[in-house]
Design a protein around this nucleic acid. Sequence first.
RNA 1: GGCGCGUUCGUCUAGUGGCUUAGGACGCCGCCCUCUCAAGGCGGAGAUCACGGGUUCAAAUCCCGUACGCGCUACCA
Length: 487
Amino acid sequence: MINETVRVRFAPSPTGYLHVGGLRTALYNYLFAKSNKGTLVLRIEDTDRARFVEGAVEKLIEALRWAGLEYDEGPDKDGNYGPYVQSQRLQIYKNHAEELIKSGKAYYCFCTSQRLEALREEQQKLKLPQAKYDKHCLSLTSDEVSEKLSENTSHTIRLNVIGGQKISFTDVIREIVEFESDNVDDQILIKSDGNPTYHLANVVDDHLMKITHVIRGEEWLSSTPKHVLLYDAFGWEPPVFAHLPLLLNPDRSKLSKRQGDVAVEDYRDKGYLKEALINFVALLGWNAGDDREFYYLDELAENFSLNRVNKSGAVFDIQKLNWLNAEHLRKLPDDRLLQMLKTEISFSQYKDKKFSDEYLLLITAAMKERVSFVKEFISSCSYFYEAPSEYEQKSVEKNWKPETPAHLIRLSEEFDRLDIPSKEDYESVLTKVAEELGIGKGNLIHPLRLAVSGQSTGPGMFDLLYILGKNEVIKRINTALEKISTQ
RNA sequence: GGCGCGUUCGUCUAGUGGCUUAGGACGCCGCCCUCUCAAGGCGGAGAUCACGGGUUCAAAUCCCGUACGCGCUACCA
């Protein structure tokens, strides 16, 4: 099903951040474009002046770039919008609406919002099945219309929907969807402020930009008949539609701010890897039909197919995201891990301390399998950055025996005799001492770990000693001997 | 209210009429490994496939109905 001429678009409205649901929509568009060698267009749908947010377009672009979803056409990061921001294309929509008026497919409406509101109230009172515009202004004569227009009467342009017809379209994900035109309102195309509504701008742009597949969220399914009617009115071929299932809160309502983070920036700031977020969100509503869970972006593109997108909404399960984050973290190349750790350190209490790359790399190697987030390379093993100031009480009670100080002094003396010890050196020394004392290695290891790290958990003992280095180890043993006995 | 869409373990899902005593993953529990914690390996609990009718020799899979959930119902997108 490879189509060389595939053109898709991601068309968010600039709300100030990129919603994770939007990220998934963008991702599916990206994957579909990639797997068909097609083109992905980014188009900003900012026709609602009342909801204008400063800097929102830039934020959107930045979030997309962070996630690695490169688009082929669209506004760029330097503020060159080109023809891809709707607020800069107002005349185009106006012209198209007027074309529809000329052909009798649309008409001017001079009704005030008060009349519209009253109409709606009345219809509700009468318990009419649905509230719809009563086509009041359709009966105006052309003279009346020109008079009102010349008087600059506030007006909108509405689509004249003819009742009694079936509107059906094919959705890749849901197959054939049917609506009655009786249930479709005379949609406003141009608002009284001169701006187009989403419906008009969207249809006009999708046509002008030669979009072949409209892949968007399910919240648009109900307005698709309006769009189909519009394509029809213009005499255009509608694109193929694919309505994606919604991302859900744990209570199964549409994913919202109130119940957790929804902005991709939030996840980025919390330390989630773009690889993990992309991987996770890709699997929310799609799978290749096998058991595979781990993907990189390019691998998703190789395997993606719209036909395998699910119909039902998916709960955003943070636990699985966390797991994927850990999985991706472990596979991160050393240089990237190092960079991320350094950045993390520069924001931490250790920002003024100097650590060599070699040292930090030893830490990540030792901790990789014990953390899910980069920041845990600091928070879960602070003893690599400073000597412990406290000793875990539970471990003291369990592992600090009356004979422990003597054992540790013995170990410390033996370590001191070593010249630049390796892990193996530490291990053989400790093994030897344990044998001579006639005790299990654990009896030395647990108190030793407590002494040098202050904790009862962490990497392998000999890795820990090796990373800290002989002098530091001896110093910490001495400190622990003083502090713990008096604790 | 109307219209539309959906409904398989807590969650993400496999399943397109017989291979299914419904498979995998996350999470949870246990065991193994082991100096701890992880990682890894092995195993366990967990789904009367929303419910009720059909069709069929045979249905999670096809049809009809009901329930429930969600979305839309704006001069928002």
